[in-house]
Write a protein that binds this DNA or RNA. Structure first.
Length: 340
DNA sequence: TAATCGTGGGC
DNA sequence: TGCCCAAGATT
């Protein structure tokens, strides 16, 4: 059974593999570990369509891990703006510098796992794809494919242990990277979450979920919690064709990113409403933004005759605002201010 | 174990 | 249009 499944899958992959920028070039057996690592981090909880332009921009600007390691962190954060989950960018810089110090990329799953931002999935994926090593690569696609293939009906997250064991059982000893990517391609294009296209699936005859009933019902997921709606304020302080930007501290929400000064809103509660400087504030309106675990209604106010804020920050030229790397929430607020 | 941490594509 | 979801890691 196990060997048959991987054979069917790899035959399908040979005919239908997607052509993606981080995959091996024709004639090269294995792709560049730097490009594999970078793509895998960008792809964490992020769609291929969203990643493509960022991958192109990063690899053009920083073609090697040494180049990325030499970059100022704030440049990398700004380049990551809009992609989300900014701890990935903070860890990316740390990992690049660690690799540069080592002199070369770690080439085992165990050593890769030591790099910041590489968890069980990413370490296994890089080991398999970039170094051809057998590894158990389990992402959300593989979870779905395997839960259906073996008709695993226990709900997530409890079923993950069984999924890992089942994946290990069907993973071949050769073509480790192709197998992992084939499972993910199958999950993203055929064995999709809502509407699996079983008639096109190379594993239809092997699939217990298909034989037993409706594979779309697997894997069973826990009900999701509702998101609270928080209130906050942000301030647009403009002088001589420049706007006052701050850099958010720490490792929490949008940590390390440039931003408008705000009133301390968070997932836990509303902001204080207290402005950063004295003065007359003009109401510009409100932007709504939904994060992973809460929604925010951000009221934007503008000051036309400001003093220099006391808090650390910088006057950023309006004609270069795109380069500031504002995360999407503050890009929305900036758009509102510039349209007012 | 469960919460935290973003965003945009696709339906 | 609102909601589901995605090549998860970290604490």
């Amino acid at each position: 059974m196990a060997a048959i499944v991987s054979e069917h899958l790899l035959d399908w992959y040979d005919a239908h593999a997607r052509d993606l920028p981080w995959r091996a070039r024709p004639g090269e057996p294995l792709p560049d570990p730097y490009r594999v690592w970078l793509s895998e981090v960008m792809l964490q909880q992020t769609t291929v369509a969203a990643v493509k332009p960022y991958f192109e921009a990063f690899t053009t600007r920083w073609p090697t891990v040494e180049a990325l390691a030499a970059a100022p962190e704030e440049d990398v954060m700004a380049a990551w703006a809009g992609l989300g989950y900014y701890s990935r960018a903070r860890n990316l810089v740390k990992a690049a510098r660690a690799v540069a110090d080592l002199g070369s990329f770690p080439d085992t799953e165990e050593d890769l796992r030591e790099l910041p931002g590489l968890g069980a999935y990413t370490a296994a994926a890089v080991a398999a794809i970039a170094f051809g090593q057998r590894a158990v690569v389990v992402d959300a696609n593989v979870e779905r494919v395997v839960a259906r293939l073996f008709a695993l009906k226990e709900p997530l997250p409890g079923v993950r242990k069984a999924i890992r064991a089942a994946t290990d059982a069907i993973a071949p000893d050769s073509r480790a990277g192709d197998f992992a990517q084939a499972m993910m391609d199958l999950g993203s294009s055929i064995c999709t979450a809502r509407d699996p296209k079983c008639l096109l699936c190379p594993l239809e005859r092997d699939c217990r979920g298909r034989a037993e009933g409706d594979p779309a019902l697997l894997p069973v997921k826990a009900p999701k919690k509702e998101k609270p709606v928080r209130q906050g304020r942000a301030w647009w302080i403009e002088r001589d064709g420049a706007v006052w930007l701050v850099r958010r501290e720490g490792t929490g929400m949008l940590g390390g990113m440039r931003a408008l000064p705000d009133d301390g809103w968070s997932a836990k509660g509303d902001g204080t409403g207290e402005p950063p400087i004295e003065g007359h504030w003009e109401a510009l309106g409100m932007v709504r933004h939904t994060f992973s675990h809460f929604a925010l209604e951000l009221t934007v106010q503008r000051s036309a005759a400001p003093e220099q804020p006391e808090r650390a920050g910088e006057w950023w030229p309006l004609d270069r605002l795109e380069e500031a790397g504002l995360p999407t929430l503050f890009a929305k607020a900036a758009r509102l201010a510039l349209a007012s």
